[in-house]
Nucleic acid binder design. Sequence first.
DNA 1: CCTTAACGGTGATTTACGTCACAGGAATCC
DNA 2: GGATTCCTGTGACGTAAATCACCGTTAAGG
Lengths: 238, 238
Amino acid sequence: MRTPYGLEIIENCLACPHREDRLFCNLPEPSIRALAAITASAAYPKGATLFVEGQPARGVFILCSGRVKLSTSSADGKTLILRISEPGEVLGLPATVTGTSYELTADIIEPAQANFIARNDFLNFLKENGEAALRVAQQLGETYHSAIAEMRTIGLSHSASEKLARFLLEWAANCPEEKGQVRIKMTLTHEEIAQMIGSSRETVTRLLADFRRKQLVQVVGSTLILRNKADLEAIVNR
Amino acid sequence: MRTPYGLEIIENCLACPHREDRLFCNLPEPSIRALAAITASAAYPKGATLFVEGQPARGVFILCSGRVKLSTSSADGKTLILRISEPGEVLGLPATVTGTSYELTADIIEPAQANFIARNDFLNFLKENGEAALRVAQQLGETYHSAIAEMRTIGLSHSASEKLARFLLEWAANCPEEKGQVRIKMTLTHEEIAQMIGSSRETVTRLLADFRRKQLVQVVGSTLILRNKADLEAIVNR
DNA sequence: CCTTAACGGTGATTTACGTCACAGGAATCC
DNA sequence: GGATTCCTGTGACGTAAATCACCGTTAAGG
């Protein structure tokens, strides 16, 4: 389904606060127009699923607003969350480019707006727009980077506390810091944190309680304050 | 250092048995020539290091022969191996494309021949050759894919035996199979296997002994025969 | 060929953490 | 606003696997 909103999308792009960071927004204008012509915008409620691991890749989703959980799970129901995607990211890119199946499942965890581009349209567009292809390669590189980062927190830790500390620090890396303290909005449940660091829900609550007791973190409603970044780092390097 | 072997490289490419699979070998001839002009070939002994994690990316290495271990390690010396690269693969691609630091360390484990392309040359080449850029994106997608696969063996397992079984099956996936049995050449030490599945050397030897006792695998010198693929799969799905 | 280092095999010990079970709070829904 | 569902918190328990320690065997290297 082609969108009639091409111009609107262009305007959105031009108005977008982090144009520079984004994948396609600062392409030459003809490219943007070509892109708009093959883009279909849609809104998704919380709990919706963009795609499921194992499905043949239909195309990519460019996330405009909301947040998406990317996960994989095993036959017995155990789940591993690889990433929480933020606006500006492109979802389903690796599978779409290689022409394989989605390797992850994408679930909406905060109501989202996303632009869909079908695989064929997308590949044709890339062939015509060399610069865009390069951008795609870069985005893929970053995606890989963050996957490696997650591997490290899971694979290089000796204990669950180390994993949690690593997780918190990486999570905080995107947030502004002031004199050693970082306030982060923790929108994940303990269960989800457990699935991100590969442990059980109970140990996450126990460890967080422990960190609180040790003055490493402070919890105020759903925001979490890292009181003692240095000591967290010490846990990581134990 | 520019290579004077341009023509030789072209010939190698044309003679290459899996030309189709490879990144650049079946590009239009002018592109191949351009590529050859910026390529520097070199031989590396066992134990040599192509690049180290954290180094600013200098460029990419196209592996022609030999095998390379890609790993990351933590401050206290614990190591996680992400992949053993085979001829035809391009190493250092994500970091080179995004212009960041190598996220992994690349060590030669079997004497290797590799073509180096400096970052600037490489990026310029991609800008001029849209098709090559698309190939790069595809290769990145595959690299990502294999990283996810490894995450799954490490992150979704309940036990070390599950991890080992997953590892063996994935390792065997590339090898020819005959009536349920697969012969794989295990060139890794137990220590290295442990570093691939995130466990300790001792448990790997114990588990392998266990698998042998249970007739799941058979060891003949340095080749390993999976006698009972079905039962290994059962372990994974426990 | 002999020395030295790397690798594989095995026992004993300890502990972190997964699992089960249950209970109070907080959201959410109709 | 009451009911149901989801989330957090905590205790008890058992086990898998990391760690330490040691030894025989195999491979490497001069």
